[in-house]
């Protein structure tokens, strides 16, 4: 089995939601969050299917429908850049460039150290401070070049502390 999550952890997550079929979204979100690589592995999806008593295809139905899920490993931190109109109007594309330069990757890619993935998402309602990005549960707005550098460094530091 791959290094991410152990079977017991997944069972624990399912149990927290009382093994209810309807809670599949929350269960998969929790698994994705705990995976450390922001994705849901096929093996984990199979465990969920077995435990909830539904076919694996149904789990994949859900995984592929909702934009938040990924079935491929991503960076530890997924940098979600808004690409909806409000941020576009205030020059969101400049922000993309800043991240691309600072990280040395293109939109949609993951850094070699597995720390960051850069990806587009639709509006997450931070238009008041656009152009905005979201990393995990944190939202960062009114971005400038300095802020982007500072931001990435703070995540890099946290990550070295945890090692």
């Amino acid at each position: 089995m791959n290094d991410g999550l152990k079977k017991e952890q997944i069972l624990g997550i399912i149990e927290k939601k009382n093994g209810e079929k309807e809670q599949i979204l929350s269960i998969l979100m929790e698994i994705q969050k705990e995976s450390g690589k922001n994705y849901v592995d096929k093996e984990w999806a199979r465990i969920v299917a077995d435990e909830l008593g539904i076919p694996l295809t149904k789990v994949y139905d859900v995984l592929t429908f909702y934009a938040m899920f990924s079935t491929e490993p991503r960076g530890k931190y997924v940098i979600e850049v808004c690409n909806s109109a409000p941020c576009h109007v205030v020059n969101g594309s400049a922000v993309v460039q800043m991240f691309e330069e600072e990280l040395g990757i293109k939109m949609g890619e993951t850094t070699a150290d597995g720390l960051f993935t850069l990806q587009y998402v639709p509006c997450f309602g931070a238009c008041d401070i656009g152009p905005a990005v979201k990393i995990g549960e944190k939202v960062y707005g009114n971005l400038t070049k300095e802020k982007v550098t500072e931001l990435l460094n703070s995540y890099r530091e946290v990550s070295t502390c945890q090692k």
Binding site: P86, P122, C123, G125, C127, D128
Partner: peptide, 10 residues
């Protein structure tokens, strides 16, 4: 609330 540009519900 998925409407781009809306954040009142939030």
């Amino acid at each position: 609330e998925g409407d781009p540009g809306a954040f009142m519900d939030r």
